[in-house]
């Protein structure tokens, strides 16, 4: 029997044991793992451990990021969905009434996301380039929560382009990989530059942080529209 407590983020549970802090979500599809995460049973409910090293939201939670404002029944737009590691936890949180549009440009990972969506019918996999919203705008709708995790030089511009899909009052989670923007500059300089770019675009930054020691040279921003 574990001591799981719901965090300020509904649907995300924390376990504070002598081995450290772990995060869990209720498994939407009982008995099935998505990656190599641990499953536990607590009073009849099955939970999946949210990896802090394979998922940037997982790492940000461990670093005590501000509330995400992600709720059951939400619509979510996820840019850079890959094979669905993080997507699966968001899928747990929003539950059967929610919907998560997972976009990725690479067929190799999207095939896996497609199979995952067979089980989890709140995941909508879309093969597209996030830099070209006009190619998928008719396939999605405005969302309550926006996530972006793509290793691209134009990361910030892509995020700004896709902000139009976020509802007013909704929050966005942006993960930045410094090396993809410029390998020669120091990560800290790049994070400052990104912050300035967001501010110039009049994006309201609620919180930001680097992800050490979970991810090297990465930082994340939570913004609100």
């Amino acid at each position: 029997m574990k001591d799981l407590e719901e965090t300020e983020n509904p649907g995300i549970f924390i376990e504070d044991s002598k081995w450290g802090i772990k995060f869990w979500t209720k498994n939407l599809i009982k008995g099935k793992k998505v990656y190599d995460e641990k499953l536990i049973n607590d009073e009849g409910t099955e939970y999946r451990e949210w990896s802090t090293v394979k998922s940037k939201i997982g790492a940000a939670l461990a670093k005590n990021i501000c509330p995400l404002n992600l709720n059951e029944g939400d619509f979510v737009l996820y840019l850079g969905a890959a094979s669905g590691t993080t997507v699966s936890h968001v899928s747990d949180v929003i539950g059967k009434k929610g919907l998560i549009f997972g976009i990725d440009i690479a067929p190799r990972v999207l095939r896996q996301l497609y199979f995952l969506a067979h089980d989890r019918k709140n995941i909508v996999p879309i093969l597209a380039d996030c830099n070209k919203p006009e190619e998928y705008d008719y396939r999605i709708c405005k969302c309550d929560f926006l996530v972006q995790d793509i290793a691209q030089k134009a990361q910030v511009q892509i995020f700004l382009k896709n902000l139009k899909f976020l509802k007013t009052g909704g929050r966005g989670f942006l993960a930045i990989k410094a090396r993809s923007i410029d390998v020669t500059k120091s990560p800290i300089k790049i994070f400052e530059m990104v912050k300035r770019q967001l501010e110039e675009a009049e994006v309201n930054i609620v919180d930001y942080m680097d992800l050490e020691p979970y991810e090297k040279d990465h930082c994340v921003f939570v913004v609100e529209k």
Binding site: F75, L99, F101, Y114, K121, N122, R139
Partner: peptide, 18 residues
């Protein structure tokens, strides 16, 4: 891009996109 949340519509989003 505003759209209401509705079980049937969610299912259609899912089905057509799949």
């Amino acid at each position: 891009f505003v759209f209401p949340k509705d079980k049937t519509f969610n299912e259609l989003f899912y089905k057509f996109n799949m």
